[in-house]
Design a binder for these strands. Structure first.
Length: 258
DNA sequence: AAGAGTTGCAACCGCGTGAGC
DNA sequence: GGCTCACGCGGTTGCAACTCT
């Protein structure tokens, strides 16, 4: 029993930590993160544990490149919802909000650069007349702000509807024109050439109905199925036994590596 | 081959929200 | 109703891997 509070660990996770986390999530579920962080013996915050689980260790995760279908879906949904990454992620089983966010940023950065290159040689200041001097991001916009496209500034088409109650998208729009609105604009212009492919994933939540992916978290191989069927009562028996997991991890590694 | 620049991704941070007291 | 705490989300950063010169 350690009496001295060790320093909270940060930075990249080790395989050992991953294994510990997977096991304890199996025992206690993926809700009580602070609790898991404490009892697991990982010197991590609950937040950090949750993030690691959601973005990397979750069994339903797909890994690897986005498929063209997924890419289109991201564009489509982003044009509807804006930067609601978690919401978008629910429509892409096996993809995380972080992954989609990263994809979007890098993808759109590229597009912006390409667009800039395409525009700049012939008309370096052609659309500057309508842009605010203190708002350089407007230079990237492929079109001036008009009512036709104003739904991007308000988070999507729904926001155009004159409803009494503000939708989440409307609230989002109240925040003003952010950097990401640029990406929205770019996406919107793409949208005109890309046919929507949204094919009716279940509306409610992410059910991870995708087939098990062999690329998904390797740590799962080490964790016995039976762990996942334990109820909380049973799991209490394992509470003080994080060291056991470590040794079983080492055993698992040893058997895998021969 | 080596250094500089770029890209992609994992992880952290800050804030908003909702549940429990 | 107000307070506290944990969780979830979106934005941002850091760094390893990759590409270019």
């Amino acid at each position: 029993m350690k009496m001295v509070q060790e320093e909270i660990r940060k930075g990249p996770w080790t395989e050992k930590e991953d294994f510990q986390l997977v096991c304890f999530v199996g025992l206690f579920g993926d809700r009580r993160w602070d609790f898991i962080a404490k009892v697991s013996g990982l010197n991590r915050t609950g937040k950090s544990c949750r993030l690691r689980w959601v973005n990397y260790l979750h069994p339903g995760l797909k890994r690897g490149k986005m498929t063209p279908h997924e890419e289109r879906l991201v564009l489509e949904l982003h044009s509807q919802w804006g930067n609601r990454w978690s919401r978008i992620a629910r429509k892409l089983p096996g993809r995380t909000d972080n992954e989609i966010k990263n994809y979007w940023r890098t993808h759109m950065r590229k597009k912006a650069q390409e667009r800039k290159r395409a525009i700049s040689p012939s008309s370096p200041s052609s659309n500057c007349s309508s842009s605010a001097p203190h708002n350089p991001k407007v230079d990237l916009l492929p079109f001036s702000e008009t009512e036709e496209r104003s739904f991007h500034d308000t988070g999507g088409p729904k926001a155009l509807a004159p409803t009494g109650k503000k939708t989440e998208e409307e609230k989002e729009a109240d925040k003003g024109y952010s950097m990401d609105d640029i990406w929205k604009d770019i996406a919107f212009s793409e949208e005109n050439t890309i046919k929507p492919v949204y094919d009716g994933y279940k509306e409610e939540g992410c059910d991870f109905a995708c087939p098990p992916n062999p690329m998904a978290s390797p740590v799962w191989d080490y964790c016995p199925d039976s762990l996942w069927r334990m109820d909380e009562e049973e799991s209490k028996m394992f509470l003080p036994m994080s060291d056991q997991f470590i040794s079983s991890y080492e055993h698992g590694m040893a058997s895998l590596t021969g």
